[in-house]
Amino acid sequence: MTADTTAVIGSPRSTVDSIVRVTGLKKVYESNRGPVEAIGDITFDVPRGQFACIVGPSGAGKTTLLKCLAGLLSPTAGEVVLEGERVDGPPRGMAVVFQEYGRSLFPWKTVQQNVELPLRLKKTPRDQREHKVAEALTAVGLADRGHAFPWQLSGGMQQRVAIARAIAYEPHVLLMDEPFAAVDAQTRADLEDLVRSLWQDLGVTTLFVTHDVDEAVYLGERVLVLSASPTCVLDDITVDLPADREQVDTRSSARFAALRTRVHRGIQDAKAGRRTPSEQPA
């Protein structure tokens, strides 16, 4: 798997089992001041089971890319293919965790009802629903908060509920849009470890959009660095850190520092308007 993921942009498409294929994706918004090209040309593949992080400078079209992946926006050109099927609406096998957990959870439903809703929409039988909801809430450490309302919980706990809702749905691809941008640093570290261990336990392909370089390197097996708008993939970095990561040890390792430097350099290149990475040792 690792040999393919290091593929440089423009090289022949990998032949491994790609669960997500993005080809020539382009998104142009019509505005009053004429068309705005948010995404220029994005192409990448994600093998089944990978944890890939997508980073880019502010305004790099990260959210636009995510919405195209989620089928919530239709691209101007190019396509997103999920499990061999072209995405032209929210695909069945995908769950999205949004940054704004407070707005993404329904305040009129309890925690349990929020987690249950996608299963109801999926027409999962009631007895299975109860079991899956309980399991998902246990997995995020909220087994005893099912009857609370989201607004009675802290921000970090609310985002846990949103994550529970996503994993109870049993998606093949989990999409996360800067999910921890709005929580404090310590909660953030806990949630990072939670997401990492859920990924290891469930083996679900995870695409994690963030603007945080350290977070991307800490979480991912791979980091895609986006250029500034109109966006392309500026760098594609394999994160060859050990699978078991720990907040203090991993982040203080020499390899982490090297990877972090490369991703950070990529972000700086993107801000400078470059479309390809500047020369540097990996």
Binding site: L72, V96, L121, K122
Partner: peptide, 15 residues
Amino acid sequence: IDPVAEETARSYHAG
């Protein structure tokens, strides 16, 4: 209606 709530519902296939 909150746009994020609507996108959430749509992403989970609410008819």
